[in-house]
Each structure stands twice: as C-alpha cells, then as structure tokens.
C-alpha cells in the first residue's frame, strides 16, 4: 500500500490529530514536523520551501517509495507542489488542502490575506469557519501553548516571509506537476479564497477542485472526518 506523506500547515500543527488518525488508519502514514517546528532550530542554510521540498524528496528516496500520496495543508500544499515540479517519479497522487505558494494575481493584489498584520480576531475569522469553536483563546492557553503559537509564527516567517507565502517562479512550472491532484477547499476560507483554488486547479495538468462545507482554511481541523474521507475516496478511486 502506498505511503501517505502529510505535510503540515503553517499554524496549529497540534490540531490535526483526529484527521491524521482517520487518514492513517491501516496505512503507512508519515507526518514529519518541519525543521524549526520540530523544536530544533533549522541549520542557518535551511530556510526556504525549496529546502523543504528537497528534504521530503530525499525522504521518499530513502524509503524507496514509488507511488506516494502527498497530502499537504496550506504551506504543506506549497511544499508538495514544489516537490512535484521537481520530481514526480515517486509521487502517485496529491491531495492538497488550500495550498498556498503560487502567485496568480497582479502585483497590487494579494492571493493570500496578510495574517501577520491583522488583528488576532480578524485573522481567526479568516482562518476558521467557526472561530469561536476552533481558534485558540490566547488569554486562557497556558504559557507553553502560547509559546508554541509564537514559534509556529516564527517558522512560518522563516519559510514564507518574502515573497509572502509564495514563489513567484512556481506558476510557470506547474505543468510539471502532472499527477492526479485533488484540491480541497473550505467554503469559508478567508486566507486563500476558494476562487483562488478554482484558478489554481485550472493551471494544474490533472486537478479536480472540491469544497468542504462549514470549513475555513484548515478543513482537516474543522471537518476532520469529512476531509479525510474525501481524500480517501479520491485515493481509492483509481
């Protein structure tokens, strides 16, 4: 059975448990934390999404995997796309949850809302369909948990500060990502709008676009079961 490699998003890496449990049941699931996110500061030379892409291409090679299923959430979806345009020989399918990384709009427009310089409450509304239920309340979290929030934001900046959450050169190479791809988008995504996802699907050689109801930018957190089931149905629909 094919290996499943889950590439996590920029924030809330600790909230994906139920999704990963369902996705990984009976499968060979790998869900590594990126350097930095894993608690160890990355080597100073390791600071771009390119580095992440090569690292996980190396991993597929080390495991001698030839038909991997890449599941990437947001930043992780960007990593998956960078992997696929470089070397798709070990990738069977991709399921990308509101991936960032590709610049589709003009120079005075943003494809991705600027979460960094938004008030916390506004950022929470951009990210979640139901922020009251899902967005962490920093005032009641314990100190270590808020420190984790701060660290995740730091590493998101490390990998994606400028250009903001994208690689300006990636769009022109998307034809190389010629693997069956499912783009899953939360209907209430205010960080990367579903319309961006539709346009991205048009640019990919073999992609289909589906939405997840009652979910924002992280459908695997807000709708863990539905999202995992949609991915599994896609994977098994050969």
């Amino acid at each position: 059975m094919s290996l499943v490699l889950f590439l996590h998003g920029e924030h809330f890496t600790g909230m994906g448990g139920p999704f990963l449990e369902r996705l990984g049941a009976g499968r060979d699931l790998h869900a590594p934390l990126y350097p930095g996110y894993d608690g160890t500061p990355p080597d100073p030379d390791f600071r771009s999404v390119d580095d992440l892409a090569y690292r996980y291409l190396d991993l597929l090679e080390e495991l001698d995997e030839r038909d991997a299923i890449l599941v990437g959430a947001s930043l992780g979806g960007w990593v998956a796309l960078e992997m696929a345009v470089r070397d798709r020989s070990r990738i069977g399918r991709m399921a990308l949850l509101a991936p960032v990384g590709v610049k589709l709009s003009g120079r005075e427009e943003r494809d991705f809302a600027d979460l960094v310089f938004m008030p916390e409450a506004e950022a929470a509304r951009a990210l979640f369909h139901d922020p009251a239920r899902w967005a962490p309340d920093h005032a009641v979290l314990d100190e270590a948990a808020v420190e984790t929030v701060a660290l995740e934001r730091q590493w998101a900046a490390w990998y994606g500060w400028k250009p903001y959450m994208h690689n300006p050169l990636l769009a022109k190479w998307l034809h190389r990502a010629a693997v069956p791809t499912l783009l899953l988008w939360g209907e209430s995504d205010g960080f990367a709008a579903p319309d961006y996802g539709r346009r991205l699907a048009d640019r990919l050689p073999d992609a289909r676009f589906e939405t997840v109801a009652a979910a924002g930018h992280y459908p695997h957190i807000e709708r863990a079961e539905a999202t995992a089931d949609a991915i599994l149905a896609f994977v098994e629909s050969k």
Partner: peptide, 22 residues
C-alpha cells in the same frame, strides 16, 4: 499602534513574543 504591529513573528525570543500575544 494596533497591537498586531507590536509582535512581528520571530522579532524577539518566543517566550517574550508569547507574553505579547497574550
């Protein structure tokens, strides 16, 4: 100044940033 401009990610060590986020 709006508070989000006060703690850009990684500007200070995480423990201090956590205090500002709170």
């Amino acid at each position: 100044v709006q508070s989000q401009f006060f703690y850009p990610p990684g500007y200070s060590p995480a423990a201090r940033m956590a205090g500002l986020i709170r």
